[in-house]
Simulated scan of single mutants.
Amino acid sequence: MQKHLNMLREFSLPLIAGVVVALVWANFWPETYHEFNYKQLLGPLNFHFITNDIFMVFFFAIAAAEITESCMPGGDFHPLGKAAGPLLATVGGIIGPVAVYLLLNQVFGSANLVSGWGIPTATDIAISWLVARIVFGANHPAVSFLLLLAIADDAVGLAIIAFFYPDPSHPLEPAWLILVAAGMGIAWALRRSRIRNYWPYLIAGGGAGWAGLYNAGLHPALSLVFVVPFLPHPWRETRHLFEEDPRDASTLAAFEHEWKVVVDFGLFFFGLANAGVEFSSFGTATWLVFGSLLFGKTLGIFLFAWAGHRLRLKLPEGMDYGHLLLVGIIAGIGFTVSLFIAGEAFADPQLQDEARMGAILSISMAVIAIAAGKIMGVRRKI
């Protein structure tokens, strides 16, 4: 049973299943889908709010845990020069799609689509990792390069959500950010008091952060991002991204181990809540998002990493320019975080659906990457 559960998680099947169910439901019975998503479920809270504003707190917290561990001595981001190549590629993976989006919008779009520029900046960590393993094999250096890039990419994505996509239904009230600072102070005090259980950090520190962000008009899904780095953890990391150390009994490791399973399977509900767009929703925003992910991500990552290599930032041993181009294509799978940002970028539901369709179409980059890998004769390293 454990083997089958791990297989479901590894292949992101809960998320994909949620997307498929949402697409079928929204296209055959759109009225009941919308009613399910937005009718009151727990008091005044609806399914969409519970998923995007509460469940996604833990999704972004797991990402923050990975970033925290990677920045520790021995981690993949420490020292900074060790990750300079992937980080420079990340810059290209942000600037490239933003530039392509704004350029395409200038030519084919309109002023009301400008705010969607942040949607194609994301990279879906889980699905891109899976595709990279299919293309390169589990032990190819391009897989680690992609993971470093994707983690850094989503770290920037968190900042973009926080600063550029405030809640349109709540005007910005920065004074409430005092509660976020208070939540961080509580987490720091708990750590100083050597509290090992992660629940006080989540309830007291995370609760204050959630209330502060929500009332400030910023997205509360980021509340635990400010708390997770304070969870007690070793000062040296011994494993790579997504690897678990059975000897690590720290608070951060316990939180990540216990909640990653919940998040992996809970992504079914995220897909169900966000991917229910009708096929008639294809529009200009769809092609702006998809085109920016396909061309902007690929070219941005390739050109910036190529420039870094010319400046003597070496690519990992065993990785060449062809592999780098494939990494850029795979990183164009925005999906999860792109779906999330699409819901925040536009107030108009029609534009939200058009943009979400572009994020869903980005899964086709997997097919492009696998086919390109075959044509280029990539030698997989198992």
Rank of each mutant, 00 (worst) to 15 (best):
1 M>I: 12
2 Q>P: 05
13 L>R: 01
22 A>Y: 10
27 N>E: 05
30 P>R: 05
34 H>V: 14
40 Q>A: 15
41 L>D: 04
43 G>P: 07
45 L>R: 04
53 D>S: 06
55 F>S: 04
57 V>D: 09
64 A>P: 03
67 I>T: 12
68 T>V: 00
72 M>E: 14
73 P>G: 06
76 D>H: 05
77 F>Q: 04
86 P>T: 07
90 T>D: 03
95 I>E: 06
95 I>C: 08
96 G>E: 06
96 G>T: 08
97 P>F: 04
99 A>F: 12
107 V>Q: 00
115 S>Q: 12
118 G>K: 08
120 P>N: 10
123 T>N: 08
129 W>A: 14
134 I>M: 13
135 V>E: 00
137 G>T: 11
142 A>K: 00
144 S>I: 10
145 F>L: 15
146 L>A: 03
148 L>D: 13
148 L>V: 07
150 A>W: 04
157 G>D: 12
170 H>P: 01
170 H>G: 00
174 P>I: 11
182 A>I: 10
183 G>E: 07
187 A>L: 03
190 L>T: 08
194 R>T: 11
195 I>N: 07
196 R>K: 12
196 R>M: 13
198 Y>G: 05
199 W>Y: 14
205 G>P: 01
206 G>F: 11
207 G>S: 03
211 A>C: 14
215 N>I: 01
223 S>G: 00
223 S>K: 03
230 F>I: 09
233 H>N: 08
246 P>A: 05
247 R>E: 15
247 R>K: 14
250 S>I: 09
256 E>T: 07
257 H>W: 11
264 D>G: 06
264 D>T: 06
265 F>A: 10
266 G>M: 01
270 F>K: 01
271 G>K: 02
275 A>Y: 00
277 V>H: 01
280 S>T: 14
284 T>R: 14
284 T>K: 12
284 T>A: 13
291 G>Y: 01
295 F>V: 15
297 K>Y: 00
298 T>E: 07
299 L>Q: 05
303 L>W: 07
305 A>S: 14
307 A>T: 15
313 L>W: 14
313 L>N: 09
316 P>T: 09
318 G>P: 07
322 G>R: 15
324 L>H: 02
326 L>G: 06
330 I>A: 05
334 G>C: 05
337 V>D: 08
338 S>C: 08
338 S>I: 08
338 S>D: 11
344 E>Y: 09
344 E>K: 14
346 F>M: 12
347 A>F: 03
347 A>V: 10
348 D>I: 02
360 I>A: 07
361 L>K: 02
374 K>M: 11
375 I>N: 02
379 R>C: 12
380 R>M: 02
382 I>S: 15
